[in-house]
Amino acid sequence: MSKTSRTSITMPSTAKKGSIIEIRAIAQHDMESGFRYTESGKLIPRDIIHVFTCSYNNVEIFKADFFSGIGANPLIIFTTIATETGTLEFKWVGDDGYEAINQARITVS
């Protein structure tokens, strides 16, 4: 059984063709670094999101690899050029079969 969690995307729903839009993507996740110990001295195993990808009408436009140094509830802000009307798909993949997918529509004039 795979895990998933709440995610949220903030980006404009309309844009002028050729303009640069800013996208904020956040996922609810503890990002357990694998360097912390419990009170009894046991190491807490690592549980993080590894990869975040963004595709624009099924073409991958952005990818990021996350490591233990990314804080809890990973937020990433990046930019892209609005080329055509369509769907942006966001995907997070992590340890222990974690997977989350979110989509956003954009109308380009």
Binding site: F62, G69, I70, I76
Partner: peptide
């Protein structure tokens, strides 16, 4: 762990 992230 020195690496924090890599963005492509």
């Amino acid at each position: 762990y020195p690496n924090i992230f890599a963005a492509y």
